[in-house]
Design a protein around this nucleic acid. Structure first.
Lengths: 225, 225
DNA sequence: GGGTAAGACTACGCACGAGTAGGTTGGCGG
DNA sequence: CCGCCAACCTACTCGTGCGTAGTCTTACCC
């Protein structure tokens, strides 16, 4: 390691490919999240990544491909976070609770990545839309499976025609709640998860009458604010 | 020189301003809904409206302003639809049910208008975002008020800190369900409203056990349209 | 019937941003 | 110490699409 005592080199030294790619992706996620796909300019991404445009193109290709790469990385992280393996033997309700909690936790620590996934318009015909709708699909399926599992003991287990729309609505509710959270940041991730869990599992009819849901002794007192 | 008598002019005759404006707005809504704000071109809107570009600009200004005009019109229609005055004396649950029903009904007959409102990315900094988030806000407030009303008889009425996020989640769930509906068009608006109402009012915990919610016989015929 | 002004069109200017050509630097093997 | 290759940059081209200047034309009124 030559110390090389460089005078001031605000710009980049030569770096191996892997490091640069990561730098670029980080910058791209940030900029795409801030301005959206269309309003983000490759120039700004290059500048944020402390690199010049030709390098950008050399490493990750055109704007579409770059965006898709970002979505893939962030979606993988998200789905992994909420789909992580939990200890066996939990009741479906508690599993759902855990995953919701993980979801809000994830969004909290990875705001830019979340906004990248959520704040794009989904207009058919765009090349990246495929990629965008895919993560939502995966998340929905994951939830749907969970719901289906919750009814297997019942005399009439729910079919996917029942669980799927429910899961879709749940995902939508989660997204909307996150957006509300951003405007009221005084709440903890756990508190938000509780909120959503109560809505979902009990429903308003029960909440009105003062009942509420609690995780079955896995976590301690969850007062979110 | 004046020999150019009536050779066919398939293009537009002279029309009063009001009619043209409506024509233009209709076309703009359609195109914006189809391609989204950014990918929609003024040329295509002009062509769809059977008019030339300078007229477009003369009547409704630049692209931003045109889009805002579209959003305003469609948002007004939507909010009016779900906020319409219902006969007095309905229980909150039944009111909510009615409004959900109206919502799905509205979306069904005005798909383009709905997509215009829903499918745009909401990136801060865009001029139109203000307008877009406003309708969602209004709808949310409307629902929140309804929920608050449902708890006034209770010993501990809910505060807006409780009802507001719930309403936000509800709106999000509704949007997501509509999207799911578009992919499974075999259901009626009433059926979709029932679905959502069951999720919301009863919650999954109850649904699992086979219970379900029904409107309390205020409406007579099941005119499912 | 002729003047006129509003309604309408064709054809263009111009900015912005994606993508690239070609030169420059620095590390490394000989 | 010298050439050579790969990482890197500056500075450009070019397409696309918003917005407009300038011209025509038709309904209407005197």
């Amino acid at each position: 390691m030559e110390d090389h005592r460089d005078s001031e080199r605000p710009r980049s030294r030569r770096l191996p490919r892997a490091v640069r790619e990561r730098q670029i992706l980080d910058a791209a996620v940030e900029v795409f999240a801030k301005h959206g796909f269309h309003n983000a300019s490759m120039d700004e991404i290059a500048e944020t990544a402390s690199i010049s445009k030709p390098m950008l193109y050399a490493y990750l290709g055109a704007k579409d491909e770059l965006f898709v790469a970002c979505v893939r990385r962030e979606a993988a992280k998200l789905v992994e976070a909420i789909g992580a393996d939990i200890g066996t033997g939990l009741a479906p309700a508690d599993q759902l609770w855990h995953r919701l909690h993980m979801f809000f936790e994830y969004v909290h620590v990875n705001k830019a990545g979340w906004q990248l996934l959520h704040r794009q318009g989904d207009v058919p015909g765009e090349p990246y839309v495929q990629e965008l709708s895919e993560w939502r699909e995966r998340a929905t399926q994951l939830i749907a499976a969970l719901l289906a599992e919750a009814t297997t003991d019942q005399p009439q287990p729910m079919q996917s025609e029942q669980t799927e729309p429910f899961a879709a609505a749940l995902v939508g509710a989660g997204e909307a709640l996150v957006e509300w959270w951003f405007q009221h940041p005084d709440f903890t991730a756990e508190g938000m998860a509780m909120r959503l869990m109560n809505m979902l599992w009990l429903g308003f009819g029960e909440l009105v009458e003062g009942r509420s849901w609690f995780p079955s002794s896995q976590t301690e007192d969850p007062t979110g604010s």
